[in-house]
Design a protein around this nucleic acid. Structure first.
Length: 382
DNA sequence: CCAACCGGGGTCTGCCATAGTA
DNA sequence: TACTATGGCAGACCCCGGTTGG
């Protein structure tokens, strides 16, 4: 009853002020306060606790913007109880940068805290992102994909420091562009966290007796744009796992990490271990020696990445076509092609009576255009 | 001329836990 | 004490073509 009375008084106050047209932020905030509605939430025992109320003006505004209130509330309920928010400014800002209504609604639905950022803050952050991106639409694309990356941090100074730190590592603007596109979270990390990862990689390089830690780090980051959003713990576990599972020497590990291995570093360790175990078991059951298995993974680290199920299907598919497992070991890259692609190619070749035992499997390891050109020649030769 | 080698390009968030803060 | 800022986790390939050496 008391709550209802309070609400009525507030509505009266609102009616008396809402048409005054004062373009003043303070007044806008007051309006929101005046709209506050109290509600109670039930607990298991009979006592009823009064929670801080949700801001109904905010709810209305978000509804008008087309925001999925249910989704947003589930994600960040606290935002709905804030008295002062900037949803209109944020929407306006995004609109000015080229986002359409649907995009804006989706962004706020997925990262409601976005509406607590001020117009000034957003302008500044945008300016910093634009120092890396050429156009506004590139940024919109990233935000659309991952609203959290852009809005999670309120610290523009930290962002600026991250940019100069990454530049100081010798990364080019092209590298930064790639990192911000594919792993935007990197730039919202605390500078200190990014520094720690770089330090870890430098130390690793030194421990491997390599002379040039700076090049080493640069190379790993350019090979794997995601590295800075992984935990040091994860990278360390994976490096240790590489070394142990493949019994690598320092120089072998250095080579691996700066090649395909860098891409594989950010896999979750359990996943990688599982894949390694399953795939090596399958290869050994097909008659490969442990040395051959080791060589297979060193030559083709993406095997850690590919799910065992997929690799297994592909291997079966090759064996069915009288392709020897040792031929695969010589050309592991044919596993990079999708199951469908591989199947189609084998089918077409078999139709032409292609003898894999005689000619090997290299024909499978080519781009679509090259493969089709070869196929055409084979057809002509018939 | 062509097979073999090799590097590069695309793409990757949405959720949870928690220390810190107002 | 509620809320924010931030760290961390699981998830899990495919394809193209330039260059080079025989």
């Amino acid at each position: 009853m008391a709550a209802r009375a309070v609400t009525q008084v507030m509505h009266m106050y609102l009616r008396s002020t809402r048409f005054s047209h004062l373009p003043n932020c303070f007044l806008a905030a007051q309006l929101k306060i005046s709209y506050l509605r109290f509600y109670t939430s039930r607990h298991n025992d009979s006592t009823e606790t009064i929670q801080k109320p949700e801001n109904t003006v905010l709810l209305n505004n978000l509804t008008v913007l087309g925001v999925d209130i249910k989704m947003a509330r589930r994600r960040q309920p606290g935002v709905f109880r804030k008295v002062i928010t900037n949803e209109e400014a944020v929407a306006e800002f995004l609109k000015n940068k080229g986002a359409n209504r649907q995009t804006i609604a989706s962004i706020i639905s997925r990262y409601p805290r976005a509406i607590t950022r001020s117009y000034c803050h957003l302008e500044e952050r945008w300016r910093l992102w634009r120092s890396i991106f050429k156009t506004d639409s590139e940024i919109i694309n990233v935000i659309q994909r991952s609203p959290e990356s852009y809005f999670r941090s309120s610290d523009n100074e930290n962002l600026e420091k991250n940019i100069s730190f990454l530049c100081s590592l010798g990364l080019t603007s092209k590298d930064l562009h790639r990192i911000l596109t594919t792993a935007p979270r990197t730039f919202s990390n605390r500078l200190e966290l990014n520094k720690q990862m770089v330090k870890y990689l430098q130390d690793l390089c030194v421990s491997l007796c390599d002379q040039n830690p700076d090049d080493f780090v640069k190379r790993i980051i350019t090979k794997n744009a995601y590295i800075l959003i992984r935990s040091i713990k994860r990278i360390k576990t994976n490096v240790d796992f590489f070394t142990e599972a493949l019994k690598l020497s320092n120089s072998e590990l250095t080579k691996l990490l700066q090649g395909h291995g860098a891409e594989v570093l950010d896999l979750s360790s359990d996943y990688m271990k599982r894949n390694f175990k399953n795939t090596s078991e399958q290869l050994q059951s097909l008659g490969c020696t442990p040395e051959e298995v080791k060589k297979f993974f060193i030559d083709y680290p993406p095997a850690f990445y590919a799910s065992f199920e997929k690799i297994s299907i592909k291997i079966d598919c090759l064996l069915e076509s009288e392709i020897n497992i040792k031929q695969l070991l010589k050309k592991p890259r044919i596993l990079e092609f999708s199951v469908d692609n591989l199947k189609n190619r084998i089918e077409e070749l078999e139709r032409l009576g292609y003898d894999f035992r005689k000619h090997g499997v290299t024909i499978l390891d080519s781009s679509r255009r090259r493969f089709e050109a070869k196929l055409e020649k084979l057809t002509e030769g018939e």
